[in-house]
Nucleic acid binder design. Sequence first.
RNA 1: GUCCCCAUCGUCUAGUGGUUAGGACGCUGGCCUCUCAAGCCGGAAACAGGGGUUCAAGUCCCCUUGGGGACACCA
Length: 470
Amino acid sequence: MNSEIITRFAPSPTGYLHIGGARTALFNWLFSKNQNGKMLLRIEDTDKTRSTKEAIDAILFGMEWLGLNWDDDVIFQSQQIDRHKEVAYKLLDSNNAYYCYCTQIELDEMRKKAASEGKSPKYNGKWRDKTPNESDKTVKPVLRIKTSETGSTLLDDLVQGQVHFKNDQLDDFVLLRSDGSPTYMLASVVDDFDMGVTDIIRGDDHLTNAARQSQIYDAMQWRKPRTSHIPLIYGIDGNKLSKRHGAMAIGDYKNMGYLPETIINYLVRLGWSHGNQEFFTVGEMIDLFKIEKVNKSPSRLDFKKLTNMNSNYIKSKDNNDILTIIKDHHQNLNIKIKDGDIYNQILTIIPSLKEKSKTINDLIELSSYLTRDDDEITVKNELLDINNQATNKHLTGIVNIIKNIKNWNIIEIENSIKSYIDDNDIKLFELAQPLRIVLTGSTVSIGIYDIITSLGKNAVINRVNKYLKN
RNA sequence: GUCCCCAUCGUCUAGUGGUUAGGACGCUGGCCUCUCAAGCCGGAAACAGGGGUUCAAGUCCCCUUGGGGACACCA
């Protein structure tokens, strides 16, 4: 008895892998892993004019980045066309399909008429029982399925529950286009069958397609796979995802500084939960995931929560892993590091960096005072509104103190600065803030002692002196 | 328009007839503080509306309203 679970993720390469597609892939992956099954990847590229190589690459890259590995080789639907046709002709031979000679104009009018009569704008079955005469044969026909006109189709969906459709609502959809190419409706059923798919997990925009496709299974007398139609994700405003709110390619999330584990963890909590638990390791997700627990209601994308989750993952990451991530991003951002020793300096401040960073971009920004040359630190006067004689006096004073520090370590540095402010009866803020701005070019940074320690004596003196000269 | 699905704080959600309706993000008051965060201690914030069923309803049923999806020679 072969009871292996096989799922598939079947994106069409007409756009990039967006966040909703990523979640569908994730649910497929978790479902199959949970049951020691397989997840296959099928690229639905039957629409040759809209499919692109770039989109395929983006999908594969996105899945790899997220760690959603698929089993076996990638299947390209376009390579199975002969098989799709074969099934179509079997359907024709068994009187479950027929040629339709309607023109596009004819179909448009048919739909307009149905709409004006308050009926569903489906194909009216004009050619179901007709044989074409000579004049009809000037148009190239499509092959349509002959759906049952009576009875009803029951869908027993793992997420949606039992859903009934009256068969008279189902239209005779197209199997083969007039150029002989198979449609998605046909191709995906044939491929799912041939691939031995036991469970289809896809967006609930396919729910009615499931009822329609079930006609093909019945006509072929094929065993139907179980289905799970998961709700879609919307933007924060409740509308369909668009460029405006994050339907960007999954790679864009990488560029925005999100960790793949953040994305995975955030997505799994959209529509699925395990009590009040917010954070899951991948292993926990696999163990706990049950498709039946997925909600039926759609959810919205919330970047605030995503960002919060990311900051938590950054904090929990190993220092050396963070360093590796910083290095990768420097490469991506084309930030040139002249001296390899800078990474040793960065490593020392990673504990502080992690505490203040919500994204990888924050890590980069907060450590940029180390990756930039002394000359590249510019102090805008509006930043230094405490720019006055007293400030300059203290900056001069502190340079002299720093020059005399013998053991360059954070304790020594902190003690020296503290005694300076005590001696001069000023608040730490009055010295630390100007110093911060002069040393980093920013009003926001990690702790001032960390800055000074990591920068090294020469750089500190150079940067302060450079400022004082101007 | 027809059919299908959905409905707990602003958002993600817990809840499976008896709960002070819980958590997380966000918002907010305070503490801490060299900046910004973080952290710690508090706070406001929800069962869409109306009918049933029941001793008892966020939980079950019906209607209304409001969202969403499908209705292509796209996938």
